[in-house]
Design a protein around this nucleic acid. Structure first.
Lengths: 313, 313
DNA sequence: TTTAATTATATAACTGGTTATGCAAATTTA
DNA sequence: TAAATTTGCATAACCAGTTATATAATTAAA
């Protein structure tokens, strides 16, 4: 199996498929060896039916983890083989209650010896092994229930991509980016007010020269996010965090979070203890980010959330 | 997954199938997420082709562990998608040498980031687990290479069935069985001689009364095997082991072996140090059994093997 | 050097599952 | 209580693999 040494673990799906096929093939031969008229694909259905007097198609499907049409087909085949009787009396006329026939029950009783031998063989095999397949599979099921493989890979991608993101200070070459990124999202949700226009068109004079700061997030050396710290003249708040914008194409790389923590760092170094922030509550993802950064809601104003950093001190 | 707790490990095939499906489904979505025009089933072929300039269909099939028609179909699809060019120049005109196109090579290069993310996600998952799926699968492959599941179950069956076998001493109620079992196999291969007839028709007078012994193997209380110890008047050999017969229906339950070890035990208790045995070499399974019991060939006679017990002392 | 056997591939037919869909019965909602 | 929604099932169509088989090219054997 040199192939899988080359691919590494990302081929786990292919590798599992091959092993499964191997086991299923041998299982088919086992039923033959013991002289039972059964196929591996009937097994799960047969097993649950031997544990229950009668079940509906859907109940069986749920218990064994198959789709409902799969069970319908299997039941049809098993009925033909005389193992199962369907359409038993049910109060719910949509349901097709099925159960084992006398022949099926006889088979269920006599197949016990085969079950024992197979269980013993697998137990023996697992005892020879240092890694345990059964438990490993159970654990993967559990871990994938908690978070799917898809979502785990997405998380890894974010992690990797955030390594390609650097945060730099403002310089005139980012003037255009600062304007466009802010324009983009503000016009999407609101109208551009004069104060907005002033700030995003003239960051140097309206923000930096007044004691503020601007940070730019670069992804592969292209500016994809900005954030500003605006000097406030207020007894409690030293700065306002504002004009945070991230390009939609660069979403999902935790750029907002990186800009936020960086700007807080800058504010701290400038001696600030509280930051002010205004946001419309309808911008849910942004609000979540602010909470994550440590901002808290000021109860007074219902529509806006303003906040203060409670993280430090 | 309560179902698999009920079935126990004999449902390992079904359980693996479900897990495999789950992983494959997520893999398909991953290719979509990263924007690559690839499906999970192409992956093994695509991977080996990205490692080799050109391969024949059969070579690919062997490397990835698929059937040849499966690869043929996949190559057809990938050719249609422009990833693969087939019928490259080959000395052997039967062969269909295939390799990646420029587009395929580009894809191979750009998909590396996805590979990395998937590998990292799986690595992370395995690090969270106490049992390790990848290694467990590799170990099962190895153990099944050594001995198939089918053969392991057969072994367990023998073991179980040999527990239902008991060895008892001769009594007149086994007279018929002793005769029939011996008649059955002797007439199958040879002619019944007068000495044979005497012994199998009158075991009491011809064997036991002359200082010999007879053991009977019972399977579910039915006599299915016999073996005799015949007193010899010889300077070296105390007894001859003879008239061993096992019913064909009871074959494969290690009954011959059990009878043999029991009769040797009896001989030991009677003070014997060497046993004599004659057999025609064409009875290969029997010969193997005798060797297993500790008999050795007497070089002089080519057609017969006679022997001596060298196990004890 | 024919002839026979083997090898490489393609194709057809099958298998054990899946999703999509439509219909009838049951349940919930207005 | 009529209308809308949900549920249970069967059927159809598909999918990713398989085995069986035919054909052409190559290799081995007579």
């Amino acid at each position: 199996m040199n192939f899988f040494e080359q691919t590494g673990k990302m081929a786990i799906g292919s590798r599992l498929r091959l092993l499964t096929g191997r086991i299923t093939d041998d299982s088919a031969m086992l039923y033959q060896l013991y002289g039972f008229d059964l196929t591996p694909k009937w097994f799960p259905v047969f097993f649950v039916l031997s544990q229950n007097e009668a079940l509906s198609i859907t109940e069986i499907a749920q218990q064994i983890g198959h789709s409902q049409p799969s069970v319908t087909k299997i039941i049809k085949e098993m009925t033909k083989a005389g193992l199962v009787k369907s359409n038993l009396k049910s109060a719910d006329k949509r349901q097709n209650l099925v159960g084992l026939t006398a022949k099926g029950k006889l088979l269920a009783a006599s197949i016990q010896v085969q079950y024992q031998d197979v269980a013993a063989a697998i137990e023996d095999l697992e005892n020879q092994a240092t890694y345990h397949l059964w438990e490993a599979v159970a654990e993967w099921e559990f871990l994938l229930d908690q978070q799917s493989l898809l979502s785990r890979v997405k998380q890894q991608r974010k992690l990797r991509e955030s390594k390609d993101v650097t945060i730099v200070g403002y310089s005139p070459k980012y003037k255009k980016a600062f304007k466009e990124l802010n324009e983009q999202w503000i016009t999407k949700y609101f109208e551009l007010e004069q104060a907005d226009k002033d700030a995003i068109n003239h960051p140097q004079s309206y923000i930096i020269n007044k004691g503020g700061q601007i940070l730019v997030a670069l992804y592969k050396n292209e500016p994809v996010g900005v954030c500003a710290l605006i000097k406030m003249d207020h007894p409690k708040y030293d700065f306002e965090m504002a004009k945070m914008a991230v390009s939609p194409e660069a979403q999902g790389k935790r750029i907002g979070y990186m800009l936020g923590t960086a700007i807080i760092e800058v504010a701290k170094k400038a001696g600030a203890t509280y930051l002010y922030l205004e946001s419309n509550t309808k911008l849910t993802p942004a609000i979540n980010l602010y909470y994550k950064l440590g901002f808290e809601k000021i109860p007074s104003s219902p529509l806006l959330i303003s906040g203060q950093i409670s993280i430090w001190n």
